[in-house]
Design a protein around this nucleic acid. Structure first.
Lengths: 240, 240
DNA sequence: CGAGTTAGTCGTACAGTGTGCGAGTCAATC
DNA sequence: GATTGACTCGCACACTGTACGACTAACTCG
């Protein structure tokens, strides 16, 4: 019965209670954003809400469920594509891909939390996103099967890459270093470890003097284009 | 200096010590496979090795580092592509993609651990894999830039999808249910939540009576083909 | 109005976590 | 024989998630 997270109605009384599920989720989100995932404990969250740690358990079954709620809340920040986007399906899908990535980089704890369990069964926000993507591709002429494949491939790619990117970002902020500095410092280590792997050394060298953020942006865009090319090839030819 | 995990030489004495780093990593791997990530504590790991929990800290700086070592060890199970594969680059890349997915599904804790931090800086095994993929694409005629893009896109897609798949698998084994049973049971909940999203309801309905494993296999293959199509379009046309 | 029910909060307690520290052991070397 | 260095380990600390039962305060019913 894992789905009852989303089904269970919220109990309510008259004089509104001091704590509410929305409040708790919002506070958890704020704590995650400002201090990272390892800082989120029920006690700290309670303290932030001027409440006892165990009071939270009235509104939320356990920590895992709370995290699922937070994850879905953040999914709500993603801009769903507009199936009637006048710029065409491709531009809309692209925008959506970038939006997913932006949200995952903005909340760099999202990747790990999704992998931990959030992924497995999606909440309403994730469903809304999936529905919108399916609709987008179908409107572009895809069969339901193609739309499904396109959606899964797009999401798989975007989330895979963004998860890796955010892992890197978390490591940097934890080290309190700028991405540029870090690349410079890491380079000497990488040269040693990667020594038997000339193409990797070369790859590092090629990006050595670039702004790492731009490199990442470009790299993401490259793969996104590649995936969307693949999608386009599976759609009926556009009417002239 | 995050890279010193891979650089630090192992201390050794004459009469070989009761514990070794390899042993610890192997035991941790076994524990992860058999009981999952939440069962891996330093105390339990120590007990499994007939050693005190804190003895491990002689061989390993901390738990995080241990996990990084385990992750890289498992990466070693992935079959690197053979750049001279007589079946062509596409078949080789495909095989590699399937191998990555197989390893991630076999060790369903891998996705989360990679997202947590492993991803950020790769160990030798991950480097070997990257090098092999770069070599494969370059041998197929790609420029270093295209090879880089292809590698990142392929890995991003495969790891993204496989992480999502393994999250589902973990949830199932935790619930002690068969994937088929679960789909059947979840269906009634999903119908409620997804009710405003007709395409998702439809998607569920389409797969309702299939073997979920085959559905997943097919879906993965679909996206892999799509990505490789995109890669092919970026390679020079094959000589006749 | 009084009694009972229910929603909501919280303190305490328990079993567990990662790991710093210092004390111990034992083989190799001087 | 003394000393060094490689290891092992028990204890302690601060911290975790959460079960449980006690408590308060508001609402409902007779």
């Amino acid at each position: 019965m894992t789905y009852d997270v989303w089904l269970r109605p919220q109990r309510r009384s008259r004089g509104e209670p001091a704590l509410s599920r929305e409040q708790i989720v919002a506070a958890a989100l704020a704590l995650l954003d400002s201090e990272g995932v390892e800082a989120l404990s029920m006690r700290r969250l309670g303290a932030k809400l001027n409440a006892g740690a165990t009071s939270l358990y009235w509104h939320v079954a356990n920590k895992e469920q709370l995290l699922a709620l937070v994850v879905d809340q953040v999914f709500g920040e993603i801009e769903s594509p507009d199936p009637d986007d006048s710029a065409g399906w491709r531009a809309a899908a692209m925008l959506c891909g970038h939006s997913i990535r932006a949200v995952m980089l903005r909340h760099s704890w999202l990747g790990p939390l999704m992998s931990d369990s959030g992924y497995a069964y999606g909440g309403p926000a994730m469903m809304r996103l999936s529905e919108a993507l399916l609709a987008l591709f179908e409107k572009a002429g895809a069969t339901p099967e193609v739309a499904e494949g396109a959606t899964q491939t797009l999401c798989g790619y975007v989330m895979g890459v963004a998860t890796a990117e955010s892992a890197r970002l978390r490591m940097l902020t934890r080290a309190g270093q700028d991405e540029g500095e870090w690349v410079a410092k890491a380079y000497v280590d990488v040269e040693k470890i990667a020594e038997p792997y000339p193409r990797i050394v070369d790859l590092y060298a090629r990006h050595r003097d670039e702004d790492p953020r731009l490199t990442r942006d470009r790299s993401f865009q490259y793969g996104l284009d590649l995936v969307l090319d693949g999608v386009a090839a599976r759609l009926p030819p556009p009417s002239p």
